[in-house]
Every structure is written in C-alpha cells, then in structure tokens.
C-alpha cells in the first residue's frame, strides 16, 4: 500500500515541475585537472593561475616531472576524479604547448600557445565573480571541419563550467570567446556589463519565477544595455595534433601548416648563416677565376718590344 502511495505521490509531484525527470537525464559533469610540466616560465605559471581562478571546476596539481611519459596523466586524473586534463608543457623555457585531453578514452589535442598575456599584466578594468559560469562564444568556423568540431567540444568541456560544480556561483557575468582566425584559436574573456540592469533584471526574474514556460516580452532586453569589458587573459592556440586516445593512440589529425618554433628559429639562424656562406662562396669563386686567368700564379707576362721599359731602358 505504501509503495502504491509513494508511486502516486511521486507522479503527482513530478508532473508539475518535471524536476524529477532530470535526475535520469545525463548531466554535464566536468572536472578539469590542470597542471604544468617542469620548466615553465613565470608567465606560463600566471596564465595557469588565471585559468584556475576562472574555472571553479578545475583542480590544480603540482608540476609533472616528465615530458615523455604523459600517460601518467591519465592515472593522475583518475586519482583526482577528473575527466578533463589541461596540461601545460613547456619546452626550452620559452615554448608552451597546451594539451587538452579527455581521460580515460580520449581524444587529446596538442596545441601551441602563443601571445600569452596574463590577467595581471593586462590591467583591464573588467572583473567577474570567482566561480561564476561563463557563456562560451564560439566562432561558426568551428563547425566547418571535423577536427575543429572535436576541438570545440574539448574546449566546451574544459572551459564550460558545469552547473553542478562545487564552488560555482549562480550568475552569469562573463563570456569567453573562441575565434578561429588565421588557422589559430584566439581566446578572450570579457565581463558582461549591464547598464540599467537592476530594473530590467528584477522585472525579468519575477516574470520568470511566476511562469517560466512563457516568455514575457522583453522590455528592450536582448538588444540594448549590454556591453563587454575585457578581463583577460589573452592567448592564442595553434592546433598541432589530435590523438585518438588520451595522451596516446593513433594520430587522427595533424596540422600541416604548423611550423614548430624550433624550426622557425633554426631557419632564422640558417638564413643568417646563408648570408655568410654566400659571401664565402663568392670569395672562393673569385679566387678560382683569378687563378684561371693566371693572375695569382705570379707568372710574368711577356714584355712587348714597344713597352716603355724597353724603349727607354
């Protein structure tokens, strides 16, 4: 009897608000493990700190000792109950590679990070709640190719703060922009500044609490009085490679246009060396030419009989 009562009451209670049903539905549950390798510069460290501040669902860990055995990160993520990993791999104390991965099954994206400006050094006036959920703004170009789709999904998981996160705050006061330009992903973070927000916002909220299903006519909302103030940080990512597994597995995408910073540096050096080599070659050539003409062997040319030295001897 009790069971029957329970089931009926459950039906009754679930019917009006439909909250009960959502329990069965899949939820967006994300936790991000963020950590660096050894050998990061202060700038990389500060960027990591900024991202950690912006992402309440992130878990910062100590520097990873190795740069070769990245599969260890899977175990680390498992240890911390994280289903995302953002790993900063620093090379040569200047180049930064960011790995985004979904352990345990992948995929993994490796990206080269350039133009890093941290929140502190940018001195922007924007500010937002620590732990508020951002709106993620993606460029439409992300949906054009398969690999960008994968990257977009990874970015959504990593930077989108799930509502169930522990330290989350209930309001939306910043937006993160991801734009594809020049084969790179440009990342910006803005504060949402609403003017006259207090009046409109309250009215809106009241309407919503009364009847959430019916959309009240927006009193000038949605088209005016929103502006953005940049918060920082700024950085640019160039996708290099996508692996099928998490820090392993076959390569399913590789960016042809990416040239490693090492290559660029060595090309620069070589171009400088090329200048010297060309000059040296020129000198050698000239010498050879001279010796071919017999100017270097010291052979005396025959004295003509009309030469001054002969005539006025």
């Amino acid at each position: 009897m009790a069971a029957v009562y329970k089931s009926i009451s459950k039906q009754k209670s679930s019917a009006p608000n439909g909250k009960e049903e959502t329990d069965n539905k899949p939820k967006n549950k994300q936790r991000v493990l963020i950590l660096t390798s050894r050998g990061v510069t202060y700038r990389h460290r500060h960027l990591l700190g900024d991202l950690n501040a912006l992402l309440p669902h992130s878990r910062k860990d100590a520097k990873l000792d190795t740069k070769t055995q990245l599969h260890q990160l899977n175990e680390l993520a498992d240890l911390y109950n994280c289903n995302n990993v953002m790993f900063f791999e620093a090379r040569k104390g200047k180049d930064l590679y960011i790995w985004l991965s979904k352990p345990p099954n992948g995929p993994t994206v490796k990206m080269h990070c350039q133009n890093i400006h941290t929140m502190e050094e940018l001195n922007f006036t924007g500010n937002c709640l620590k732990g508020s959920r951002p709106i993620l703004s993606f460029d439409a170009a992300f949906d054009k190719q398969a690999h960008t789709k994968v990257i977009k999904e990874l970015l959504t998981h990593t930077f989108g703060v799930p509502a169930s996160s522990r330290k989350v705050k209930p309001f939306v006061d910043h937006v993160m922009g991801f734009t594809m330009a020049d084969g790179k992903i440009w990342i910006r973070c803005y504060q949402i500044a609403e003017t006259e927000a207090s009046k409109n916002g309250k009215a809106e909220n009241e309407e919503n609490t009364q009847e959430p299903s019916i959309v009240a006519p927006k009193s000038g909302k949605g088209e005016t009085n929103v502006s953005l103030v940049e918060i920082g940080p700024r950085f640019v990512l160039t996708p290099i490679v996508i692996l099928e597994g998490s820090f392993g597995g076959p390569v399913i995408y590789e960016n042809k246009e990416f040239v490693s910073p090492n290559q660029i540096r060595s090309d620069l050096r070589k171009s400088k060396a090329g200048r010297y080599n060309k000059r040296a070659d020129g000198i050698m050539e000239r010498k050879a030419k001279k010796s071919d003409l017999g100017l270097r062997t010291g052979a005396t040319h025959e004295v003509d009989e009309l030469d001054d030295r002969v005539l006025f001897a």
Binding site: P26, I135, A140, D143, V150, G160
Partner: peptide, 25 residues
C-alpha cells in the same frame, strides 16, 4: 571520437552555455 565524448544534444542550454555564432568571424 567526437561522438564518443560529446555532450548529449538533449541537454538544456544552461548545461554548457555554449553559443556558436551564426556567421564565421
């Protein structure tokens, strides 16, 4: 791979709050 790890489409907007622009920037 995308299908394997993507968030289900049935999730409400408020789950991820990701907006894709209409036209590419």
């Amino acid at each position: 791979s995308l299908k394997a790890f993507a968030l289900p489409a049935s999730l409400p907007f408020s789950a991820a709050q990701a907006v894709t622009s209409d036209a590419p920037t």
